[in-house]
Amino acid sequence: MALTAALVDTDTVLSVENLSVYYDRFLALTQVYLNIPQRCVTAFIGSSGCGKSTLLRCFNRMNDLTMGCRVQGKISYRGTDLYAPRVDPVELRRQIGMVFQKPNPFPKSIYENIAYPIRINGYQGDVEELVEQSLRDAALWDEVKDKLKQNALSLSGGQQQRLCIARALAIEPDILLMDEPCSALDPISTARIEDLIKQLRTQYTIIIVTHNMQQASRISQMTAFFNSSSGEAGAGAGYLVEYGTTEQIFTDPRQDLTRDYVSGRFG
């Protein structure tokens, strides 16, 4: 992992040490070591059921809410152990935001979708201003500025997903976790979200799970390739095969598995 640090000349935000995750008795992810650099897009790729999303959900402790989920090992977020008792998951989730696979806006007005997290987290400034700013940041403002009072569910899927990104950005997170944010979207909406991610990566640390290798190669600077031990989806424990700069993973992989995967020979 020292190699990783050398390749990307930035500070480490998240550092994963010997992490294993269980769902009841089932070992979902085993012995992961990983350093996530600051203000970069890091992509997690790999076939279904190899623990990419599981790892992502450890970063904002969403796995706490999953019955029977147990985390072993250590994740440090800017030097703090994420699973230390004094870390409050509610406070943590303000700093580490998340965008989900399927757009999940609240069934409220567009304005309220953004204003709600702002208010609930005790924002001291002008809420309306921050709503506008967040929508601008998510490249959605021009499309919705005349219909802020409309229900968010009246937007198209791609707009809903950008609304969810705006909602995550509104509370000024440090890290943005994205769990296959484009898998439910058409190619044009996908392209817009990718553009958006490219804009955001100068200000935010972004970790994105994707099944689309072209997407990973287009938008990320770092790539981690995961696989599961038995090779069958969901059957065995997921593990990290290789982690490096996106360029290295796609052009000069060190592992045969990685080469087969990124060249499309399986997966």
Binding site: M62, F106, Y116
Partner: peptide, 11 residues
């Protein structure tokens, strides 16, 4: 997904 949306913004 609605619950997750809520938790993810720090509620």
């Amino acid at each position: 997904s609605i619950r997750q949306a809520g938790f993810a913004v720090g509620t």
